[in-house]
């Protein structure tokens, strides 16, 4: 009886020891896998600049002396985020994410210049609007997290690849002179050269269910692009098409004068700091079905059964 009891005890204990290892292996498997992430955020100007190739981005300028200027960054505004990632374990993974400008900040510069010389009394009032056209940035990143069960702190560091980075410019110039008034309107497209930046984020996520998490983070985008070409799209004078009389409908920019007739390139600010929130969903694991070989039974064997 004692020997049986001893045996029973050993038989009871050993599988439990193996059960511990099995639990750890299962837990590690749960941490791996693909996930999707989506969210919204608001970005504000960071490392902004006040003026560019066509003048001041944002502010007012009166009579060549009185001014008020603000820093601008063309990735500021409401942003949408989508990310697709893979966690190798509970701590480390990789992610490919995109940031799209959904509602971009418009910058307005207005100036008023009065010429009071006796021979030529005139005033010129100019208003220029600058706005990025749906900027889109792709970011392959390294992801690290604490991997806790409910609350999780994470960090993301990667490269920022801007794929859409043009700027729309609307200019309205009213010239009043000796009783006459002329209104010139221009719409221009500022193209920028491609350049790689960097992005980073730190945030916290909360596990709502087995697969769903909600997250909140602060992110930084650091990128500045250089001007490439300024294209005149439309030009009107007092509401009548005046494109044919426009001077230089296409102005190229370059870092050097090898490109004949090019203007000096300037950097365009695209850096931002943003507050983002969203949800993430851990994708179900794909189970691979193992093919089993069917055993063929010969008529002779079949009859035996």
């Amino acid at each position: 009886m004692r020997k049986i009891l001893t045996l029973l005890l050993l038989v009871h204990s050993v599988p439990m020891l193996f059960a511990q290892d099995n639990q750890i292996i299962q837990a590690k498997k749960k941490d791996k896998g693909f996930y999707l992430r989506g969210g919204l955020g608001y970005a504000i100007t960071h490392a902004g600049q006040t003026s560019g190739p066509v003048g001041i981005y944002s502010g007012t300028y009166l009579d060549n002396s009185i001014y008020n200027v603000k820093a601008a960054s063309f990735s500021a505004g409401l942003r949408g985020h989508l990310g697709f990632g893979y966690m190798f374990n509970k701590s480390i993974g990789v992610e490919l994410s995109s940031e799209t400008g959904m509602v971009n900040t418009m910058y307005t510069y207005s100036s008023s210049v009065v010429n009071l010389s006796q021979s030529n009394q005139s005033s010129t009032n100019t208003t220029i609007h600058y706005k990025a056209f749906f900027p889109f940035i792709l970011s392959p990143s390294l992801v690290m997290q604490t991997g806790e069960d409910t609350w999780n702190i994470y960090a993301r560091v990667g490269v920022a690849i801007p794929l859409s980075h043009r700027i729309d410019i609307d200019e309205d110039e009213v010239v009043s002179q000796s009783g006459s008034r002329n209104e010139y309107k221009y719409t221009e497209l500022l193209k920028t050269s491609f350049s790689v930046g960097a992005t980073a984020a730190a945030g916290v996520s909360y596990k709502v269910s087995e697969r769903f998490k909600i997250w909140g983070e602060i992110s930084v985008l650091s990128v500045a692009l250089f001007t490439k070409e300024l294209d005149l799209e439309t030009a009107t004078l007092n509401g009548i098409d005046n494109y044919a009389n426009a001077n230089r409908p296409k102005i190229p920019f370059s870092l050097n004068s090898n490109n004949y007739d090019a203007n000096m390139a300037n950097s365009i600010p695209f850096s931002n700091v943003a507050l983002n929130v969203g949800v993430s969903w851990k994708l179900p694991e794909m189970k691979v079905k193992k093919k089993t070989k069917k055993k063929h039974v010969t008529p002779r064997e079949y009859n035996r059964h």
Binding site: T50, G59, Y67, V69
Partner: peptide, 14 residues
């Protein structure tokens, strides 16, 4: 960034 109520020397830059 702002000249205030009197003309100032120069605009700032980044």
């Amino acid at each position: 960034k702002s000249s205030g109520t009197y003309p100032a020397d120069n605009r700032t830059f980044a």
